[in-house]
């Protein structure tokens, strides 16, 4: 067992874990942050997606010892009491069916919008390629990302991008 100091959703935490323990299990079992989901353990489905240094990472294959910067999970995406525009758009479009993959979808989408405020369908397909949805919510995932992007377009001056690199 080793001790690791992580910055998770803006808070400094210490965890004791085996160095090879994937970040996902540190988040879920040790920090009780269960918003990030286990789906495959081999970085195929994206249910475990979190941001590390603002980049989308599959936390199921990322050893805790290799975490190189601040971590943002779905629980830390809403900032200052406001939902992230993607979270609002997700509600507006009633995207979720079972809901299990949605945290991973939203985290991948948030990383996309942090770098590209006006993605087209191809940009979305590329950024979201690592996220499975078994229920088939992809149509609404696309719509919600466009809606959230439009929100930035309408109000870029006063809106801070949250969730990426916090």
């Amino acid at each position: 067992m080793s001790k690791f100091v992580l910055m998770v959703n803006g808070e400094k935490v210490e965890v004791e874990a085996q160095p090879e323990m994937p970040l996902l299990w540190v988040l879920r079992d040790k920090l009780k942050l269960t918003g990030s989901k286990y789906g495959c353990g081999i970085a195929q489905c994206g249910a475990c997606t979190v941001h590390v240094n603002g980049s989308p990472m599959r936390s199921c294959v990322l050893p805790v010892s290799a975490v190189s910067g601040p971590v943002t999970t779905i629980e830390g995406l809403a900032q200052g009491g406001e939902l992230h525009p993607l979270q609002s758009a997700w509600i507006q479009h009633d995207v979720a069916q079972c809901g299990y993959c949605q945290a991973g979808q939203i985290m991948s989408a948030a990383a996309l919008l942090a770098n590209n405020r006006n993605p087209d369908d191809d940009d979305i397909d590329q950024a979201m390629a690592g996220n499975y949805c078994r229920c088939g919510t992809y149509i609404r995932v696309r719509q919600a990302i466009h809606t959230a992007a439009a929100y930035y377009d309408a109000d870029t001056s006063s809106t801070k991008v949250t969730g990426a690199g916090q």
């Binding site: 990030s36 999970t73 779905i74 939902l83 993607l86 509600i91 979720a96």
Partner: peptide
């Protein structure tokens, strides 16, 4: 349950 889902 949309709000609880999107907020993890």
């Amino acid at each position: 349950d949309n709000l609880v889902i999107v907020s993890g």
